[in-house]
């Protein structure tokens, strides 16, 4: 169901609500759906929708290619973060569970834990802390694949950066908006 304004009884805060079966699962992709009563830029939203998956794939590429060409965990994570920023700018608040399945602090914690574990893993195998090793193995179609253990450190970095950017959006973005809304609403 689409329309210029939400139907009656449509709540202003975010929660799961009814919609018809042919509507997309991603609520923010619904045209005409506007949670806050503010202006919408169709062009920005369209481009955001189109570009979002591509940017995520690009960030993954940067992550894996970092060891050999420009890139790396930091750049990859930041690019992925920018994708979410774009989505936020276009679509509004991101703090309901339908849009982001993982809470940012969990992402941050996971990234940090992966990084620390990558450092500690060599120790039981007789190596030094944070020692790197490379593994080569043959895969039938793709040929020889070489994976370096420092890739996992990069993965930890990647996840953490995404978590940080999401947290930034959650606090500075949605958090501040909620503050403004409370102020204006006069609710305490």
């Amino acid at each position: 169901m689409t329309g210029a304004e939400p139907p009656e009884g449509w709540p202003n805060t975010g929660e799961r609500t009814w919609f018809r079966s042919d509507a997309p699962a991603e609520r923010w992709l619904l045209s005409g759906y506007s949670r806050d009563s503010r202006e919408r830029t169709i062009l920005l939203e369209l481009i955001a929708r189109v570009v979002f998956p591509t940017v995520l794939v690009f960030s993954l590429y940067l992550l894996f290619a970092g060891h050999y060409r420009s890139g790396g965990g930091f750049s990859g994570g930041l690019v992925a973060g920018q994708a979410f920023v774009l989505r936020y700018l276009a679509g509004g608040r991101l703090d309901d569970s339908s849009t982001v399945s993982m809470r940012p602090p969990v992402l941050i914690g996971t990234g940090l834990t992966i990084a620390v574990i990558t450092g500690l893993v060599p120790v039981p195998f007789g190596g030094v802390v944070l020692e790197s090793a490379s593994f080569t193995f043959a895969v039938p179609v793709l040929g020889e694949i070489k994976i370096v253990s420092s890739l996992f450190l990069d993965v930890g970095v990647y996840l953490l950066i995404i978590g940080v950017v999401l947290d930034l959006l959650r606090t500075l973005g949605s958090g501040i908006e909620a503050d403004i809304a409370e102020r204006e609403g006069g609710r305490r």
């Binding site: 969990v106 914690g109 834990t113 802390v129």
Partner: peptide, 21 residues
């Protein structure tokens, strides 16, 4: 010599756990 890394890495790991719990 791994003992030298314990005061640094152990709290970091524990911080992650503490955050999870």
């Amino acid at each position: 010599s791994e003992l030298v890394a314990v005061p640094v890495l152990l709290p970091l790991g524990a911080a992650g756990l503490s955050m999870a719990f």
